[in-house]
């Protein structure tokens, strides 16, 4: 089972458990998804519950919202996360605000899935790590799974949640392998995973960067430096508690993020820790992020845009030498 395949497994399990769950999006049905993440669902659940839509992202998200107001639990795919830009009104002004501005008259159990991130040579308009676009939109929850088990467990939890949850599926992780047993656990929103424990430094990273952080921690261990690696798994809600608990042991925070620093979850985490837990720190908290450019196309350019294992290791040593 890999990261790509587990998506249909998670959606299928929820559709089997609850008739109100439907799936809609471009090519999600007959073609099994542009990324082959929904293969087999049409055959299993039929065209009423697994629906191909026109290329109409506003209508996809808005229809999911409207159907949720009337009691369905829609899962909508908008393919590349970059296309969130096409339907930003429906995401940020409608989906996120609908419950609040109606004075709590509605539950909005909508799951929005999108394929996220850089590293595969898709260039600027098919590579956006778009989770930070939605970070400043109260009303949405945001999941950023990095592993097969987390993607499975978070996607199922998202579908069961009575609020809009945007699940980012990182397309450079589709080949990542993992085990999901027949009674695999749901993963709650807002609970971080402590991937590795060490007493010298706390590294926080998501999705592709989580895997690089783990690799960096392995190299640091060879240098005698033990790092804790935390994957928050969801950005909203964010598990500050686990990060703070680790900092009481390590006193050093290194956040690694795919995407520019401005207005990002990484920058927000660094700010919160500096503001609320300054006394825990022995060195300035640092965010390793991407450059302030669109995602470039050519291999060497894109490689340089993404934080590398080397950068993480170098920054960790600097933190420790502070």
């Amino acid at each position: 089972m890999n990261y790509r395949q587990v998506i249909a497994r998670a959606i299928g399990d929820e559709m089997a458990a609850d008739d109100r769950v439907i799936l809609l999006g471009e090519d999600v049905a007959a073609a099994g998804g542009a990324f082959k993440t929904t293969v087999g669902l049409l055959e299993r659940f039929g065209p009423q519950r697994v629906r191909d839509t026109p290329i109409s992202e506003q209508a996809i998200v808005g229809a999911a919202l409207g159907a949720a107001l009337m009691g369905l639990r829609p899962v909508a795919e908008i393919m590349f996360a970059d296309f969130a830009g096409v339907c930003f009104d429906q995401l940020a002004n409608q989906l996120a605000k609908y419950r609040y501005m109606s004075g709590g008259q509605f539950r909005v159990p909508v799951t929005i899935r999108m394929a996220n991130g850089a590293g595969a040579g898709f260039a600027a308009q098919h590579s956006q790590p778009a989770e930070n676009w939605l970070l400043n939109v109260p009303g949405l929850k945001i999941a950023v799974p990095a592993t097969v088990a987390d993607l499975y467990g978070l996607l199922r939890t998202a579908i069961r949640d009575d609020n809009p949850v945007v699940v980012f599926e990182h397309k450079n992780l589709f080949a990542v392998k993992g085990e999901v047993g027949p009674d695999a656990a749901l993963v709650p929103l807002g609970v971080a995973d402590v991937v590795r424990r060490g007493g010298d430094l706390t590294v926080v990273a998501t999705q592709q960067m989580r895997h690089r952080a783990v690799e960096a921690a392995g190299r640091l261990a060879a240098d005698g430096v033990e790092a804790t690696v935390i994957d928050p798994r969801t950005l909203v809600p964010f598990d500050d508690e686990t990060v703070v608990a680790s900092l009481t042991e390590t006193s050093r925070l290194l956040v690694v993020q795919e995407g520019p620093a401005g207005g990002s979850w990484g920058a927000s985490l660094v700010a919160r820790i500096a503001q609320d837990h300054f006394d825990l720190l022995d060195a300035p908290p640092v965010l390793v992020a991407s450059d302030d450019t669109p995602v470039p196309y050519a291999g060497p350019l894109e490689d340089a845009w993404l934080p590398t294992v080397d950068r993480i290791v170098d920054q960790a040593h600097r933190q420790l030498a502070y």
Partner: peptide, 9 residues
């Protein structure tokens, strides 16, 4: 789009 979704439901 929201009305369309309500009709879909």
């Amino acid at each position: 789009p929201i009305a369309v979704g309500a009709a879909l439901a």
